[in-house]
């Protein structure tokens, strides 16, 4: 009885996190913030759903499968997000106008200054600090 309520609460929490992830993916202003909503919130939501299912089914094969799905997703989601974000940054997907920290560009500019030759595309971006909302 109590376990039923616990698993129901886990399912509702997980579905809420998944819904929030989807809303974040639609509402966020640029790719990288969208990506943060999609990867973190959906992983947490899936984790909650898996806990609920493992409690509800309760036999050891199901729990083992649920644990392995959770471990797999939690190991691979950061890797996949990082790879996609890197590819997007390298192909110059525009950042949000309110972005305050772009360490890779700062690094490229500094190296461009040090080699006194300039990396090919190190055009200084307009400092965005003035337009933080």
């Amino acid at each position: 009885m109590i376990l039923e309520w616990v698993s129901a609460a886990c399912w509702l929490a997980g579905a809420t996190f998944a819904l929030l992830a989807a809303i974040g993916v639609v509402r966020m202003p640029d790719l990288f913030t969208r990506m943060q909503a999609a990867s973190k919130a959906s992983t947490l939501g899936l984790g909650c759903l898996l806990v609920g299912t493992a409690i509800d089914l309760g036999d050891s094969p199901s729990v083992a499968r649920a644990v392995s799905i959770a471990a797999f997703v939690m190991l691979t989601t950061p890797v996949a997000s990082h790879v996609v974000a890197r590819a997007a940054y390298l192909t110059k997907v525009p950042l949000w106008s309110g972005t305050v920290l772009d360490e890779r560009r700062e690094d490229e500019e500094r190296r461009g200054l040090l080699t006194a030759d300039g990396a090919g595309d190190a055009v200084p971006r307009k400092p965005p600090l003035g337009e933080v909302r």
Binding site: S7, W11, G14, A15, A18, A21, A22, V25, A38, S42, T43, G45, L46, L49, L50, G52, T53, D56, L57, S62, A66, I69, V73, T77
Partner: peptide, 15 residues
């Protein structure tokens, strides 16, 4: 995200 949601749907559907 659609793939992750599909996994979640299957997990709830299994129970």
């Amino acid at each position: 995200l659609l793939g992750t949601l599909t996994v979640g749907l299957l997990v709830v559907g299994a129970a």
